[in-house]
Design a protein around this nucleic acid. Structure first.
Length: 524
RNA sequence: GUGGGCGUAGCUCAGCUGGUAGAGCGUCGGUCUGUGGCACCGAAUGUCGCGGGUUCGAUCCCCGUCGCCCACCCCA
């Protein structure tokens, strides 16, 4: 379909079809990058597995309310960054609402009966009204044709019906997940995982969605690798092990310039008291703070602490600190987490200004930064969230977890040159003549079955060209199959790097390749 | 949402004080029908992001707009 025929314009002949472009903030991961992504993900499976974590795969979208409740209504993530839409039933399109008011209303009532429209309290009332008006309309319809006033009466009721239909929430509001902790908790509750041996240790990886302004290391569709420990107790040993696990994972990837910051932001008991003290202190120095920080005194005083404004640093240094206001339990817990980290040889930096942006965090919080990331240098953030499962309707459950920004992790690996080169171990089959093609097809099949990456050209090429192609594709060997090879049954294998070549029968060839590549395979 | 930088070939970029475009790399073909990387020759691909203005004439100057990047904010 051309642009002009769609819009009815005729002046511009044969307009070029639109050039599509990925939506702002989302991107393609091209073949040059995907081996690194796979390497990172495989390493995660491997390392997390050794810590006794199991993978969970979660939906990309969830009820909006799940995120609103867990992350917090006042957070930026929930209040302005979520991709949310109404999941309305398929056969209730928007446009027909006015045109087919009565018919549309009937379908809405049917879908409500079928529970395809949510049975919320609001909908119960709205649907009730729709039913009443529908009956009125039916009655008015029967009087139609008698006189002029019957028609205007019918119209009046018709529009009342259309108006009332707007109050029916046709479908549940759903949201593309901005993070996965809420989903993990939801799954824990939904599948009764509290019946499993506790704690339950889960990890996940996949895309998340936030509608932020894109910049280096920040995308609207971005990838996280995360893990959660749910249930059991809140022993500091769990906090330390979770942190130890991320650091082990990063070490294995040779991520450079790692810095681990930890803090305790207290619990429901002691944090509010501290926030109050902090708020009072902030009010006293309000005029020395920037506009953003002044605003936060009311909205979220803790956030003032991680301000990067140069001019505020001196003042912030004088503010009261959480550590001095932790309750006895929290203080002891934090001290023990630090001791356990030392026991594990995990190097950390205590950072009293580290706060977290999501509402559900409490006690232990941590953040890991890496080099080469510009201003978005956090590759991992996490912390304890003991009340969250209960908040989502589950049993009282302890919880701690973290999320790694995979895009940033990979960016850092690329910038520091720690991205391993993808293994190239290809065989290019240079064949000549129809007879040889049949042999080439068989050879390709056998070599592929043995696990080699084989390029089998679909059309015959000049010999020199074939070797040129093999070279450009980075193949390690060229398997030469011409008339000579087919008649003799001895295939020619050329090693592209040094130009040497030797003849083998098929069996000898497989044997030779196995030996030649054994060390390389072990490296993977 | 706010600020800054940048938009010329698939990529990296030239293009002087305005006269409607070039290079390198890459791609494809040839020199070269059983021996690749090199070299040489040749070809294709651009509404110079888009729209308007100034001008005889705009890739160049002005305005607007869109896109990309970076930073603030927030977060991973």
């Amino acid at each position: 379909m051309s642009e002009s025929s769609a819009t009815g314009q005729q002046s511009k002949p044969a307009a070029k079809p639109r050039k599509f472009q990925a939506i702002k903030g989302v991107r393609d991961l091209l073949p040059a990058e995907t081996p690194l992504w796979n390497h990172v993900e495989e390493t995660a499976h491997e390392v997390f597995g050794t810590f006794g974590f199991s993978e969970i795969r979660l939906p990309i979208f969830e009820p909006t309310e799940l995120f609103a409740r867990s992350i917090g209504l006042d957070t930026d993530v929930v209040s302005k960054e979520m991709y949310t839409f109404q999941d309305r039933p398929m056969d209730l399109p928007h446009e027909q609402q006015e045109v087919f008011g009565a018919d549309f209303a009937d379908r809405v009532l049917l879908k409500y009966k079928e529970h395809e429209i949510p049975h919320t309290e609001e909908n119960r009332i709205a649907i009730g009204r729709v039913e009443e008006i529908r009956v009125e309309l039916e009655a008015a319809g029967k009087k139609l044709g008698k006189d002029q006033s019957a028609l205007s009466e019918y119209n009046r009721i018709f529009y009342k019906l259309v108006y009332q239909l707007n109050y029916v929430m046709l479908g549940e509001m759903v949201t593309l997940r901005p993070e996965a902790t809420a989903s993990v908790c939801r799954a824990y509750i939904q599948h009764g995982m509290q019946q499993l041996p506790q704690p339950v240790k889960l990890y996940y990886m996949g895309p998340m969605f936030r509608r932020e302004r894109p910049q280096k290391g920040r995308y609207r569709q971005f990838y996280q690798i995360g893990a959660e420990v749910l249930g059991g107790n809140d022993s500091p040993g769990i906090d330390a092990e979770v942190i130890d696990m991320v650091m082990t994972f990063f070490d294995k990837l040779q991520l450079q310039g790692l810095e681990l910051d930890i803090n305790s932001i207290g619990c429901r008991e002691c944090r509010p008291k501290y926030v109050e003290v902090l708020g009072d202190a902030l009010l006293k120095v309000k005029d020395k703070l920037g506009a953003d920080s002044q605003r936060r005194i009311d909205t979220n005083p803790l956030r003032v602490l991680d301000s990067k404004l140069e001019s505020e640093q001196e003042i912030i240094a004088t503010l009261p600190r959480m550590a001095a206001h932790l309750c006895a339990d929290c203080a002891e817990h934090f001290a023990e987490v630090k001791r356990q980290l030392e026991l594990r040889g995990v190097i950390y930096r205590e950072n009293w200004r580290l706060v977290r942006g999501l509402d559900y965090y409490m006690r232990t919080t941590f953040e890991i930064t890496a080099q080469g990331l510009g201003s978005q240098n956090a590759v991992c953030g996490g912390g304890r969230y003991d009340g969250l499962v209960e908040l989502l309707g589950g049993p009282p459950t302890k919880g701690i977890g973290f999320a790694i920004g995979e895009d940033r992790l990979i960016l850092s690996l690329q910038e520091s040159g720690k991205a391993p080169a993808p293994p190239a171990r290809d065989i290019y089959i240079a064949w000549m003549g129809e007879k040889a093609f049949a042999t080439a097809i068989r050879a390709a099949k056998d070599l592929r079955a043995a696990g080699y990456r084989v390029e089998l050209p679909a059309t015959e090429q000049k010999f020199g060209k074939a070797l040129g192609q093999a070279d450009k594709l980075g193949a390690r060997y060229a398997l030469i199959l011409g008339e000579d090879e087919v008649t003799s049954g001895e295939w020619t294998l050329k090693t592209l790097a040094d130009g040497s070549q030797k003849k083998y029968t098929e069996n000898e060839l497989l044997e030779y390749l196995r030996e030649a590549n054994a060390p390389a395979q072990q490296q993977l």
